[in-house]
Amino acid sequence: MFWIGKDVDVFLTQKEFIDTAIVPLAVMDGSPIGMKQSASAAEFLMSLTAFVEQQFKGRIMVTPPFTYTNSMPKKNFIEAIDDELKSAGFKYIFYMTSDHSWTSETPELTVLWLPSIPLGDMDQSVKQSVLSDQLRQVVPMLSAKWAGQ
């Protein structure tokens, strides 16, 4: 499911099945050297989360991305988002990102970190196989949580 009206209607009646939220975390860097990197990381992240959504539509809701700059107190923001999603009824909340800083900063949250791969110049079928490979990294982490590891 996506965070859109139609899917939320389904969520509200099927909460016991749609029990997982994925929040993409995307850093925005406007500096001359960082901009391209941050843009292509965001592009990768959005493609990957959309692909995960396609595979797990009936169990996962992908929220709009949380976008931040490195000067923002992002940790506080994300804690507020976590509380909000918990109160919405999500049992499992995953944060997906290519920004390495999250892995050390928020040990209490489930952060799935994936190094970004520039998809920009790939043709559709190559892109598709890159995304399936990445999905294969993600699925075991989801299953482990779902199985209550």
Partner: peptide
Amino acid sequence: CKHLGCTVNWEGDPEHKNQFFCPCH
């Protein structure tokens, strides 16, 4: 999947050969 729309896999569950399996539920 006709339940809530996940993507099913052929023999996605090793316990059930010759069937499509939905990983969601």
